[in-house]
Write a protein that binds this DNA or RNA. Structure first.
Lengths: 334, 334
DNA sequence: TGGGTGAATCGAACCGTTTCGATTCGTCGA
DNA sequence: TCGACGAATCGAAACGGTTCGATTCACCCA
């Protein structure tokens, strides 16, 4: 292994000078710096990460705690993971995966062993056993999602309440007077996941405000469940003309079931989805949708964590504003 | 921070004894071991990962190089990633993410800085710039997929050629005499991705062997492309009665397009998919399919890498045998 | 009884970097 | 001309583990 001593010898300086030349923590003359950099390239030097973390008390690694519960939409997660990894690299950090099944002990382990400088936790539930642990850890963290008690924590998420409201507003503006929300699987609501509840709350409140009658119903993503959900919904609410779907995995089946049941989109039934833009565009017809900005969320979460690591002031709560794009699944009611 | 010296003092032994008690690299009396473990718990001791890696020359971390190219199916990737992370934990290792956009330099960086003990590389192409780098690295690696030249490398993948063949055999056994393969997006073939080519080759060879006429055609996953692909296929090959689909993202649209075009599945058109079982089961009708065992692949890849780390003999090439499950999208032709 | 043996434990060196005071040297102002 | 000053660099002490040779001690057998 090439060490900093080798580089120092090759460049004719002291090891500490090499360190300062590379980290920039003290001023080094241009000439020396250039010489050191040349030696680094000539020898193929890479600082030993362990030694560096031992001496500097910084690992340059962020932990990313994965969700593991059912009902999560994999493509959105994966987009988020990739966004986090590349954002971290832009800040000279790497990303260590922690699976959710390790629970709070996993957080203690990676933080306690100084393996990571900070933590990013996905899929936080309202009452999450990890939240108190994060609070007592000596390392900063950023949560994606909101627990019931967010005191002394930094959280970021899409403003799902506003997203639900925007869907209702869009439909109401088009003249609809009876709308329904098809949401996440029942299991997601039962385990008290914030985003699902918040969408529902925003949806219902907006309907109330606009004087539109509304219902909400959960659904599993398999075809049969979707069929049961949608046909049941249409039976109980024959006057229904607008549907909001907040369930990426069920989206395709919803469109298909409507067709099978003889409801044309958008003529007989308007449809608004809450899902990533590329998914909305891929379906037929292309769906009017509120974008779920997984990539932006990932970048933002990393930016917040880096700010905390640099002891910069950080907003406790960040809600990204939803963006609704009008496509072919909604149209003004003549 | 609690150090090994603190634990040693608390337990009334030397630091080295604590180390041996915890790592088990030398025999320690039951009594002492128990005392040390009690002190560890009492003080909440976690060994400093950097110090450990510096002293022992082992980081207990594996690199996982993510794919970033279009046409990859996110759910399968994510399943694989999670499987790798949890398998690694079972071997006392963590997983560090490396995004593919960092290219060969990323591999050099994480290996050269001793940040990881070994590397797992997903989505390897036939002619991949990373392959020669992996060969010259001083750390073991396992590839998911096969490059054109796999000499001195360890590779693991599903036996896609056999998977393609099994689909043909199943259809031929049911009496079909004209079949087609709807494959990955054209871009995937153009960048010379092994698995797509191998499925195609296995499919064509089996058709030849069984005396069945066959075609293969790529498709993008958006609804319009699928419509174009499928209707074009049916026009050019009116006698077609069996379809194999190796494109997870397009699967839903294929089923829907067939319905729109008035072909009932399985009565007018038999359908076999190559995709994860849960996806095949979720569609309507439930699809006969060859399972893509992302989870099993992840576990296997980690097992191979751990074997290499332990200097155990390791097979150069591992092809997991495909498993075809008969469901409702195929049926014997009366 | 004394030397040999093996299990259990100790002590110190070492891993490769960062960091903090100390040192050198050229420059400037009095 | 001398002292002060600041920029550039050096030297050595951490950082917290692991590992290897040495040591202790109880026990056994000749």
């Amino acid at each position: 292994m090439v060490t900093i001593a080798d580089v120092a010898r090759h460049a004719g300086v002291a090891p500490s000078t090499v360190s300062y030349a590379l980290t920039g923590r003290r001023s080094i003359s241009q000439a020396t710096k250039a010489r050191v950099e040349a030696s680094v390239r000539a020898l193929g030097y890479h600082p030993h990460a362990g030694a560096r973390s031992l001496a500097s008390n910084r690992a340059n690694v962020l932990a990313l705690v994965l969700p593991m519960r059912e009902g999560m939409h994999m493509p959105v997660m994966m987009q988020f993971v990739v966004a986090v990894a590349s954002a971290a690299r832009r800040h000279e950090h790497d990303v260590l995966l922690v699976t959710a099944d390790q629970g709070a002990a996993g957080l203690r382990r990676v933080a306690g062993s100084a393996q990571v400088d900070g933590l990013l936790v996905m899929d936080v539930e309202m009452h999450d056993e990890r939240v108190p642990v994060l609070r007592e850890l000596d390392r900063p963290s950023v949560l994606i999602g909101f627990p019931a008690d967010a005191a002394r924590l930094t959280c970021v998420d899409l403003d799902f309440a506003e997203a639900g409201a925007r869907c209702v507003d869009h439909l109401a503006d088009l003249g609809h007077t009876s709308v329904a929300l098809i949401g996440a699987p029942r299991a997601v609501y039962q385990r008290d996941t914030g985003y699902a509840h918040r969408t529902m709350a925003g949806f219902s409140a907006a309907a109330m405000r606009r004087g539109v009658s509304s219902t909400t119903v959960p659904t599993d993503a398999d075809h049969e469940s979707v069929h049961r959900t949608v046909s049941g919904l249409l039976e109980r609410h024959p006057q229904l003309t607008g549907l909001v779907v907040h369930n990426e995995a069920a989206l395709g089946s919803v469109v298909e079931v409507l067709r099978v049941l003889g409801r044309r989109v958008p003529d007989d039934m308007a449809l608004v989805a809450i899902c990533p833009d590329d998914q909305a565009e891929r379906l037929n017809p292309a769906l009017t949708s509120v974008h779920v900005p997984a990539e932006q969320l990932g970048h933002h979460a990393v930016a917040l964590l880096m700010a905390k690591l640099n002891r910069a002031p950080t907003p406790a709560l960040t809600l990204l504003p939803p963006r609704l794009t009008d496509r072919d699944s909604t149209r003004s009611r003549a």
